[in-house]
Design a protein around this nucleic acid. Structure first.
Lengths: 191, 191
DNA sequence: ACATTTCCATACGGTCGAGTATGGTTCTGC
DNA sequence: GCAGAACCATACTCGACCGTATGGAAATGT
C-alpha cells in the first residue's frame, strides 16, 4: 500500500521542486526563493537540487512557466466559456476575492517585477488578459476602438486593485465592502 | 567664481547622497542601489558614505522620505488647486504621460514592493491619493459612498496603467493613442 | 598658524547565498 | 543480485556586498 503521491519520505522530481518553488513564492516572495531554504523546506539538501536543475534561474523559469501554463490558464478557461459579457467580467472580478493560490502567486509576482523573467511573464499575461477583455467588450457591443480602451482600463483597474488590496498592506475590504465595490465597478465599466 | 552647486569636484553632503540614490533608483531600480556602486557614480568611495549615513537602510529611508516630501507632494500641489473636478482628474492623468523623474521613481518603486520601506511608503502614498480622489468626486457631486468606490477604481486604474505602460516592457502607447485613452477614461470615470 | 571639525581613501573582516566537487545511498533493469 | 543510473549529503570555493577601522586631506574657526 505504498502511496507514492503522498509526500512522506519519497524521492523528489523536478516537478516537486517547481511546485515547492511556487509555494515558496506565494508565501515569502520571489526574492526569498533561495535554493538552500527551499531544500530545507522540502527536507533535502542542495545536492538534490543541482541534480534536477542547472541553477536557480532555471528553477524560477520552470516554476513560472508551470504557473503560466496551469494556474493562469485555468482562470481564463473557467471564465471564457461564459456567454454573457457582463456575467463574464463579473466572474473575473469575483475571482480576486477568493484567495486562490494562483492569485497569491500573481500578487507575489507583482512585487518582484525587478526580475527580468518575472517581468517578461507578467507582460505576456497582461497582453493576453487585455485581449481577452477586449473580445468580451466587443461581444458586448462596443466598437473596436472603444473596446480596446475599455479593456485597457479594466485590466489596469484589475491589476491596480490587486496591488492595492493584496500587495500593499492596506486595510483589507470587508466582504460587504468588496461586493459593493465590485458592483460599482461593473456598473461603471460594463456597458 | 567658484560655483559650488556645480558638480565638478566639490565635497558631498547627505542631500547629495539622497539625490544620487533617487537617480540610481530611477535608472536601475531599488535593488541595484548598492553603496559601492553609488559611490563610484558620485566619484567617491565608501568612506564618504559611512560618514553621512549609518548604513544602507538609512540612506534608502532618507531618499524615500525626500521623494515623498518633495516630488510626491509637488504633484498634488499642482493639481489640488484646480477647481473643476473634471479638469483636475484630467490633469492627474496627463501627468503620467510626461516622463517626469518623479514618475520614473514611482515606477521603479512599483517594482520593488518586496522591500518593507518601499511597501510602507507606497501604502501611505496610495491612501493619500485615494483620499484626494474621493474628495474630488464628492466635489463633483457624487454621494460619499459612491465617491469612495470611484476613487478606489480611479486610483487602481492609475496605478495599473503605470504598471502596464511604464513598468512592464509592453509597447508604449503613441501620443495619439494615449490621448484617446485618457479621453475614454475621463468619459468613463468622471461624472 | 594651528587646532578641530568635516569629509574622504584604503584596507580589512564578515556574511550570505550561489555554484562545484565528490562520494554515498537508493532504485531499476536485466 | 549486480551494474549502472538516479538521487541525495557533505564539504568545500567564490563573488558580491555590507560594515568597520584608521589615517590622511581639506575646510573652518580663532
Amino acid at each position: 500500500m505504498s502511496t507514492p503521491t503522498k509526500s512522506e519520505r519519497t524521492r523528489l522530481t523536478a516537478e516537486d521542486w517547481e511546485r515547492g518553488a511556487l509555494d515558496m513564492i506565494a508565501d515569502e516572495g520571489v526574492n526569498a526563493l533561495a535554493i538552500e531554504a527551499l531544500s530545507k523546506r522540502l527536507g533535502v539538501t542542495k545536492g538534490s537540487f543541482y541534480w534536477h536543475f542547472r541553477n536557480r534561474g532555471a528553477l524560477l523559469e520552470a516554476a513560472l512557466q508551470r504557473w503560466e501554463e496551469h494556474d493562469e490558464a485555468d482562470v481564463l478557461a473557467k471564465i471564457e466559456p461564459i456567454a454573457d459579457p457582463r456575467v463574464r467580467l463579473r466572474a473575473l472580478f469575483d475571482f480576486v476575492a477568493r484567495e486562490l493560490p494562483s492569485h497569491r502567486i500573481y500578487a507575489a509576482l507583482l512585487k518582484a517585477l525587478d526580475h527580468p523573467s518575472v517581468l517578461a511573464l507578467m507582460a505576456r499575461v497582461s497582453t493576453r488578459r487585455m485581449e481577452f477583455l477586449a473580445t468580451a467588450y466587443r461581444d458586448a457591443g462596443l466598437p473596436a476602438a472603444t473596446a480596446q480602451h475599455r479593456a485597457r482600463l479594466t485590466y489596469a483597474a484589475y491589476v491596480g486593485f490587486m496591488l492595492i488590496n493584496m500587495t500593499l498592506g492596506l486595510p483589507r475590504l470587508s466582504h460587504d465592502e468588496f461586493d459593493a465595490y465590485v458592483d460599482h465597478v461593473t456598473e461603471t465599466l460594463v456597458p
